[in-house]
Simulated assay, not measured.
Amino acid sequence: MTASSTSSRYREVVAALRRRIEAGELAPGERVPSTREITREWGVAMATATKALTELRHLGLVRAVPGVGTVVAERGRASSRTTTTPARGTPDDRAGASRSPAATDRTLTTERVVEAAIAVADAEGVSAVSMRRVAVDLGVATMSLYRHVRDKDDLLLRMMDAVMAASPLPAEPPPGWRARLDLVARTLWTIFRRHPWLAPTMSITRPQATPHALPYTEWVLAGLAAEGLDLQDAFTIHLTLFNYVRGTAVNLESEAEAEAASGLTNEEWMEAQQPAIDRIVAEQRLVTFARLTEEGFDFDLDALFEFGLQRLLDGCTDLVETARRRRRPRRPATP
């Protein structure tokens, strides 16, 4: 696609959404299409969709709401860059006119910055998060963000810690090592489900220093050490468990991006691939796989997570039982 055609498509998206807003089809406070929905509806690239929403923000027609997404701006909250002239004389209009960017900057907090960044990542993916984008959503100067976060890496680290802090483990762990590990895994899966961008941003080889993630490690280590496992084995189990949950959850974000780029759901994409798969199966005489395709397979990521988690915990049982036997005191020989 050429630069001119990209510009034309971006303006087309802006004009269409603006018409919907001005016609009342999208009411104040109502969510507007996300970047992923825009890519599907108009067949544009993610960057074009992001640019269109940014322009609508500049025009004062939409705003970001942490935890919700991008919504139609209420009357009187429009940016000074909007091309429409507001009615004069109302208290709300006078208050809006007297509110300067500096005044907004003074009310800015680190928590607000992090919440706005999480809202962008939840709605559009972590690639859409930038210092400029967050500043636009908050209605402040970009440089004002640097009084609260050092840079984008610092912002991302704070985002990760904030979503972990929102789902703390209970004060008292359940009895038994397996129930403890099961709860850790399920809590992590729920967090990754709620914030699909999180799993790809976390690293097992270069772990980030997130204070609210370390209690998860402590829970696993303490539970396994209590059974007699040495800390090396306990930490290896922790890494294996975490990497399983994270590795499965990585598919959440990649699937959302693939659906946005192609406009096809997972089921629709598989249907489109079926003729090519059938051809390969026939050419290579993969008779067992052919039987599977005839039977069909109901792919469900939650079911896959559940199956794998139970098999992983089953595999840890032998290690735990061996450690228990080592700890069990020997009975003195009967004279």
Rank of each mutant, 00 (worst) to 15 (best):
V13P: 00
Q274G: 10
W42L: 00
L229I: 12
T217A: 13
A179T: 08
E55C: 11
G308E: 10
M270H: 14
L188F: 04
S100L: 08
V114A: 04
Q310P: 10
G96T: 05
F299L: 01
M164L: 12
T240V: 07
T84H: 11
E294R: 09
T6V: 14
T110E: 09
W197M: 13
Y146W: 05
L138K: 08
S98M: 14
V120D: 02
S203F: 03
R327E: 05
V149E: 10
Q208W: 07
M1E: 10
A256C: 12
R57P: 15
D298G: 08
G43Y: 15
R150E: 13
A256W: 09
S144R: 06
W189G: 11
V65W: 14
V114T: 00
E321I: 11
E255P: 00
R147P: 02
R36H: 03
M159R: 02
A179C: 05
V126R: 04
F289R: 03
T39F: 08
A303C: 09
P28R: 14
I277W: 08
H148R: 11
T83C: 01
A213S: 11
L319K: 07
Q284F: 07
G176Q: 02
T142K: 09
V129L: 12
E218C: 09
D154L: 15
A119F: 14
E25H: 14
I237Y: 00
D300L: 13
D230Q: 11
L252H: 06
I280G: 15
L183F: 14
T201N: 12
A23Y: 05
A52V: 00
G43I: 09
R99A: 08
T2L: 09
F297D: 04
V129T: 14
R331H: 15
A78Q: 07
R194W: 01
P170R: 03
L229V: 11
A256K: 05
V32M: 00
A119W: 06
G60W: 08
C316F: 08
T54F: 06
S34F: 01
E30I: 04
S8F: 01
A323I: 04
A23S: 15
M46A: 08
A303V: 15
E283K: 12
E124W: 12
Q284A: 11
T210N: 14
A323W: 07
A226S: 13
Q208T: 07
R133M: 07
L17M: 10
N243S: 13
A226P: 00
A276Q: 06
Q232K: 07
I38W: 00
M131W: 03
A95E: 06
T217S: 12
A199V: 05
G24E: 15
A95L: 10
G125P: 03
D122N: 06
D153N: 11
L183H: 12
S7M: 02
S79F: 05
G76T: 07
D182I: 15
A256F: 03
